[in-house]
Design a protein around this nucleic acid. Structure first.
Length: 306
DNA sequence: CGTTGAACCTGTTTGC
DNA sequence: TGCAAACAGGTTCAAC
């Protein structure tokens, strides 16, 4: 369910509904998707939710300091002052990844919970912030202020903000398939299977083309259509394929605009050719065989020449 | 460097 | 109808 536009939709909803609320207590069910369950129980109660941010497909609930943390932070700051400058915008945080089926939403405490709800956080207005995730491919972790920066290293560019030069540098230097590059979170943070296929269809690029095979014009087109698609999808509250709903229980609308994803056997919106499905790096990839011609690269030639 | 396949887990859809 | 296989928006890791 959740790629960048869906996670952004959830984050915006949470900003509306739980900003400024304090977590009074926490209850855990299954915990195999939580980094350190005891840390959640130990550090979350008493914290106020001061901000909800999105980083790629992650959500970051920024939490208030506790008195003891503030004292420790002062001490650390004093120590680091002697050596180097300190980054100041870090806070203790709850990191949440929705995986394939995760949902994070507040509910009235008396409301019956779903079968796969695994985390209940009682808020100071009587509601509960609940995490529900049937497949438990998601991730949840309490991140101390000092660890936050480290936790967020290694991710690629923000696809909404990345400029032509950086995008080209991250794509055209690589011999991996463009579909893999788009899905690689160390190249771009936040793109998933749906929006990778949609942007490749729009840019008329076959998913198995190598990054290094794209010319400057194609690369720039890809960057632009990707940004366009992500922005439009956010405006439409994301894509609801089976059960994605935003914080208010409303499905997104962008699935009605899909041109490739999930359209195997249907006609291409541009040329009427039947959309095909193939597997690229283990993921279903939908494309138009006419608009997005397959590469005739060394991979195939070599195979043929024996 | 890059690819493949399996694994993690549950639910739904498809095919015989 | 019934049961098994295939498939699902994500990530990670071993093996090649």
């Amino acid at each position: 369910m959740p790629e960048l536009p869906e996670v952004e939709t959830v984050a915006r909803g949470l900003r509306q509904s739980i900003l400024g609320r304090r977590i009074l207590s926490i209850r855990l069910g299954k915990t195999d998707f939580i980094d350190d369950p005891a840390a959640l129980e130990q550090h979350l109660p008493g914290r106020r939710i001061d901000a909800v941010e999105r980083y790629g497909k992650f959500m970051l609930l920024r939490l208030s300091e506790t008195l003891s943390d503030e004292l420790a932070a002062e001490k650390t700051a004093a120590n680091e002052k002697r050596t180097k400058a300190v980054a100041t915008t870090t806070t203790p945080s709850l990191l949440v990844h929705l995986g394939m089926t995760g949902q994070l939403a507040p509910a009235r405490a008396e409301q019956p919970h779903q079968k796969h709800t695994h985390v209940w956080m009682t808020l100071d207005d009587g509601r509960e912030l609940r995490y529900t995730d049937p497949r438990r491919f998601g991730r949840m972790a309490y991140i101390a202020a000092a660890s936050l920066a480290g936790e967020l290293t290694g991710f690629g560019a923000d696809p909404l903000e990345v400029g032509s030069e950086e995008f080209a540098a991250r794509i055209r230097t690589r011999r991996a398939r463009i579909k893999s590059l788009l899905l690689d979170q160390t190249v771009l943070r936040g793109v998933g299977n749906i929006y990778a296929d949609e942007s490749l269809w729009r840019a008329k690029i076959h998913p198995a083309r190598l990054g290094a095979q794209l010319n400057a014009r194609q690369t720039e087109t890809l960057r632009k259509v990707l940004q366009d698609i992500l922005r439009q999808a956010i405006a439409m509250h994301g894509s609801s394929i089976s059960d994605f709903v935003d914080a208010d229980g409303e499905p997104g609308d962008y699935q009605r605009h899909h041109r490739a994803y999930g359209r195997e056997g249907k006609r291409c919106y541009r040329c009427k050719t039947s959309i095909r499905r193939t597997i690229v790096n283990g993921r279903s990839s939908y494309f138009c065989p006419k608009c997005q011609p397959a590469p005739r690269g060394p991979r195939q030639s070599r195979r043929r020449s024996r």
